[in-house]
Structures are given as structure tokens and as C-alpha cells.
Design a protein around this nucleic acid. Structure first.
Length: 570
DNA sequence: GCCGTTTTCGGCCCGACTGTTTTCAGTCG
């Protein structure tokens, strides 16, 4: 998959063109980059079919550059541009309050090319010699350099969830708060968030702002206006808050939930229909008369979008067109989930007993739970072996008698380097649920890795491919895998693709789920819980499923128990 | 550079906050 590499190149081209004050081209490159980032399939496959220009935002010239990269690994135009400007624009742009215009001036007047140059110039107070740059600017840039160097990575969705719930609960209790909602990428169900965005309806903005900026964990107030303020917490998380009137609630929700790309499309659509759309409402273009804005539905409706678009779908990935044609999926919900697969206990590397885990699952209202302790050569996981597997299954039978939900027994078995499993097909067939995953030997070529996974799916009675890309958020990149090939093999051999709801995995991600869906796959939702609390993360998997346009009939966990048991037989 | 049920040429999303200005440019979301 070269999607992300190509998107990055196009983005940097946009940055450089912006620096050169080229008109409109930067937007074009950025739009193309975003289109590729959110593409549901491998761009090489699209290119091979000769369909690059069918992707909205990609025309003749950008398509040629993409093909050049796929064939030669380079884009000459990009290298020439970088050589021409000779500025480390990627890192400089990461500094808050520093954009292309200032970078250009700093380069022209002081010869600044990178972070170190900038730091030196600030320390020598050279910036004060440039018109438009003052002491505050110097201070802010210096802070920005530190921030870039020590910036925390993106926060995990599950990591900020308790804080979100606590802020919502606290503000709901204030008499001067009528309504509060969370927006932003968190609301769209993204697995990581850069910051948090809250929206509030209130007739006392000053009281809301004060309550917000004096919250316990606030380290610094970044901005404080009458309607919009922004704080930085001690852990590095930024939170923005916007105070609104009722009349603008719907338009503000749209604006703040985003995505930005979804909003840009909506605003263009509005213009084409003689309206203008902002966070304050939908207005007639001619006389600026207010048309809609109280609810999101009202605005979608006025724009000719017949269905409400759920936040998880708002990535400008075909959802607007689908909604115009009443073709949106009926997304699965948390309530559809009847149980979860792939959980661990003290029999391998989990911290809770089988009984404690099963009891917790029952408390959560599940109709079933599946235990899949490790089986394979990874010593640190205290894996099962053939002898312990027999005892393990007996123990699960005992637990089954003590709880009121179905308990499946199975293993999470390591996919070995040579594309085999360390247990015979005959024994695997006796188990209720076989999850096969990769844990070791992660450095292989894409071809080898793909062959390794596919050969296991073809040869063994595997039910679920566990955490298919093996990525760890903020820690490890996805495995080099030809996912299209994996999806196709999984479809042919009735292997369910796992949606792993473990907070640091979220694997598959939404876009990949969508690609697998298009390839004809079905899905299994797993918690991969190693402790009792781990079972509570299943809604995170539902978010990934919803971001992947999944309806409940595509997800094994939503079926009736007899149907699940039948589907697991191999 | 891309795109088209107002256009194949002439458009390209919108507004708040900050810092530096005496009315606005740059940045950000």
C-alpha cells in the first residue's frame, strides 16, 4: 500500500506551492492527497485498472505523478520543488502560528531553513527586526519549537473517553448550560484524536468560558474569546469549546463534527444551490437571509440530501452522494452486539480467571463470549500447548455450567513465519473458534507477508483473522500486506475479518473495513481483552464497524446464536 | 490543478482569534 506515501508527497507539494504563493494549485494537491488518504483500496490497484482519474480531485497531471511514483518510486516534480526551495517546510509547518507566509519572510530576511535556524534567530532576537514580528511572536514560536520536539502523539480514543464523559457530566449540571455535546474527530469515532471539541448552548457565555478555562487539569489558556476558547491540559491534550445560540446549533454541529472535507463539500453544494453555509447557519446567497441551522437534519434536507449522515460516515468518502440517493447503509449499533470474540485469561497472558471474565461478559448483557488464549511459540504470552489445551477446554466446560451465557472455547494461534500453524487441522476443527494472528517475525516483504497470511487462511480451518494489520497506534506501523489479496482469500475461505476493539489496536480501521466489505468479506468483533475491564471496550469496535459502513448482518456478533454456531463450523 | 444540471473557462468554503497593526494579515479549525 503506497497510499499514505503518495498522500504525503502531494501534501508537501501543496505546502511548497503555498510558500511560493501559487494560487489554487495547493488546494488541488491537498484535495487529491485527502482523497488518497481516505481511499478504501490500494491505489496501485486503481492505477492498474487505469482509473486514477475517476477519483474525485485527481486529474490528468496528478494521476501522471502518482503513476510515476508507483513505477519509479520517485516524483521528479516533487524533488525539483524541494531542491528549489531548500527549506524543511514539513517540520517548520508543525509549529503552531507559523504558516507559509511567515516561513517565507523568515527565510528571505534571516535565511531560516529549519527548526535549528529558527531557534537561533529567536535567541538572538533577530525576528524583532522584521516588520510584523514582535516579542509575542518570538515567545510563541520558541514555545512552538519546544512543542514540536516534545509533542505527545495523538491520543487514543479510549484514553480520552473518560475525560469526555466527565466534562459532559459536569457541564450538564451547570444551570447556565442548556446543552453540551462532543464534536470533532472523537464524535466521528476516529481511533485517535488530536484534540477535543465541545459545543454548548447557553445564554451566559462568560460563565461557560470561565467554568471551562478553570477546569482542574488546565495548564494553559490558549485562546479566550466571547464565543470560542481553547485550553491545553497538563497531559498535552488541547480542548476547544464553543458557546452557541439555539438557532445555530445544527450548523455548528456540522461544522465542528467535520470532517473538514465533508464540510467543504457541503459548502460547495450549498453554493451550487444559491446558499452559503457557515457554522452560523444556511443563508440565501443574495440577501443573506437565514434559511436553516437549528438541526443538522434541517440543513441536509435543504441541500437536497435526503438521509441523515451519521458522524462516523462524514469523511467525504461517498457518503454525500449515497445520502442524496437514499443509499446510506443502516449502520450497526452497540445494541446489536450479542457477544464478543477473542478474549484472554490467566491460562495465557490475561490477568483474570475464565470465570471472572465470563461473569463480566454476562453482566454486560452478552449472550455469548469466546475465549481464545494464546497458542504458539511466543513465550512471553504463557501460551497453551497440546496438553494444557485439553485442560483449558475442560475448565471452560466447567465455567459454562456456572454462567448464563454461551461460552465458546478456542485459541488465538500464531501464524508462523512459513505460513503454517503450530497445531494440526484435526485438533483445530474440534475447537469452537479459531483466531489466527501474527505476533512475531514482522519484518518481511509485502509479497512474503501476504503469502504467509493467505496460505494459512487457505489451508487451515480458521474462523477469524486476528488483528489483521497488527498495527499498534502510536507504536507500530501496519504490517506490509496486500490487503486486497487477503480480503479476497478470506472471502473465498469464509474467514471472518476481525475488528479488534483493543484501544491500542483498532484493527481493522474503518477505511479498511469498508474495503473488506466491498471485497465481499464478513466480520467478527473482538475485544482481545486481557483483563475484566477489557471487555468494556467493545463499543470502540462498533465505531470502527460504523466507520466502515457496516450493517449488522455483515457482523457475526449480531447474529442469533444458532446461526453463529453454524457459521463457525469448518 | 481540478471541475462543470448555471460554466470546457473561470471559478475555487467561511469566520474567529491573535498579534501587530491604527485597519489588517496570517493562521487555524
Amino acid at each position: 500500500m503506497k497510499n499514505l506515501e503518495i498522500a504525503k508527497i502531494l501534501n508537501t507539494i501543496a505546502d511548497i506551492l503555498e510558500l511560493q504563493e501559487v494560487q489554487f494549485k495547493p488546494q488541488a494537491y491537498r484535495k487529491a492527497a485527502l482523497a488518497i488518504e481516505s481511499l478504501a483500496e490500494d491505489i496501485e490497484a486503481v492505477s492498474a485498472r487505469g482509473e486514477l482519474q475517476e477519483i474525485p480531485g485527481i486529474g490528468e497531471h496528478i494521476a501522471a505523478k502518482i503513476e510515476e511514483y508507483i513505477q519509479t518510486g520517485k516524483v521528479k516534480y516533487y524533488h525539483d520543488l524541494k531542491k528549489e526551495v531548500n527549506i524543511d517546510i514539513e517540520h517548520l509547518l508543525e509549529i503552531p502560528s507559523l504558516g507559509p507566509k511567515k516561513i517565507k519572510v523568515l527565510h528571505q530576511k534571516l535565511g531560516v531553513r529549519n527548526l535549528a535556524d529558527l531557534e537561533r534567530a529567536i535567541q538572538r532576537h533577530k525576528l524583532l527586526t522584521i516588520p510584523g514580528f514582535g516579542e509575542e511572536t518570538e515567545k510563541n514560536l520558541l514555545k512552538g519549537i519546544e512543542l514540536v520536539r516534545s509533542r505527545p502523539k495523538r491520543f487514543l480514543h479510549a484514553q480520552v473517553l473518560p475525560l469526555v464523559n466527565s466534562i459532559l457530566a459536569t457541564f450538564k449540571k451547570y444551570p447556565f448550560v442548556e446543552t453540551i455535546e462532543i464534536a470533532g474527530s472523537f464524535r466521528r469515532g476516529k481511533e485517535t484524536v488530536g484534540d477535543l471539541d465541545f459545543l454548548v448552548i447557553s445564554n451566559h457565555p462568560e460563565k461557560v468560558t470561565t467554568a471551562f478555562t478553570t477546569m482542574p487539569d488546565v495548564k494553559e489558556i490558549l485562546a479566550q474569546g466571547p464565543t470560542r476558547s481553547s485550553v491545553l491540559l497538563h497531559n498535552g491534550l488541547q480542548i476547544d469549546l464553543r458557546v452557541l445560540q439555539k438557532k445555530e446549533w445544527g450548523s455548528a454541529l456540522l461544522y465542528f463534527i467535520g470532517s473538514k472535507e465533508h464540510n467543504v463539500e457541503l459548502r460547495k453544494l450549498a453554493l451550487s444551490k444559491g446558499y452559503t453555509l457557515s457554522e452560523y447557519g444556511l443563508f440565501r446567497l443574495k440577501n443573506k437571509q437565514w434559511v436553516a441551522g437549528r438541526t443538522e437534519q434541517e440543513i441536509y434536507h435543504k441541500l437536497g440530501i435526503k438521509q441523515y449522515i451519521q458522524p462516523e460516515l462524514r469523511e467525504n468518502n461517498g457518503e454525500i452522494k449515497a445520502a442524496q440517493n437514499r443509499k446510506l447503509p443502516y449502520l450497526m449499533t452497540v445494541k446489536d452486539v450479542k457477544g464478543v470474540f477473542h478474549n484472554h485469561s490467566t491460562w495465557s497472558d490475561g490477568t483474570a480467571s475464565l470465570l471472572d471474565m465470563a461473569t463480566k461478559a454476562e453482566e454486560l448483557g452478552f449472550k455469548f463470549v469466546s475465549f481464545n488464549d494464546h497458542y504458539g511459540p511466543v513465550g512471553i504470552t504463557n501460551p497453551l500447548n497440546e496438553k494444557r489445551l485439553i485442560q483449558y477446554r475442560k475448565e471452560i466446560d466447567k465455567v459454562q455450567k456456572k454462567v448464563g451465557l454461551k461460552v465458546f472455547s478456542g485459541v488465538e494461534i500464531d501464524i508462523l513465519k512459513d505460513g503454517t500453524l503450530p497445531l494440526s487441522k484435526a485438533i483445530l476443527k474440534q475447537l469452537d473458534v479459531v483466531v489466527a494472528s501474527i505476533h512475531v517475525a514482522l519484518k518481511m516483504s509485502e509479497t512474503e507477508m501476504t503469502k504467509r497470511v493467505c496460505s494459512v487462511l487457505e489451508q487451515y480451518p480458521v474462523n477469524i483473522l486476528g488483528h489483521p494489520t497488527d498495527r499498534l497506534l502510536n507504536v507500530r506501523e501496519p504490517l506490509p500486506l496486500n490487503l486486497d489479496q487477503v480480503f479476497e482469500t478470506a472471502r473465498q475461505h469464509r474467514v471472518f475479518m476481525e475488528i479488534n476493539a483493543s484501544p491500542s489496536r483498532c484493527d481493522l480501521a474503518g477505511e479498511q473495513v469498508k474495503a473488506a466489505l466491498q471485497a465481499g468479506c464478513q466480520f467478527a468483533l473482538s475485544t482481545d481483552a486481557h483483563a475484566v475491564n477489557g471487555l468494556e471496550h467493545y463499543p470502540l469496535g462498533v465505531l470502527m464497524a460504523r466507520r466502515g459502513w457496516l450493517e449488522n448482518q455483515k457482523v457475526l456478533n449480531c447474529w442469533e446464536l444458532p446461526k453463529i454456531e453454524k457459521a463457525l463450523q469448518k
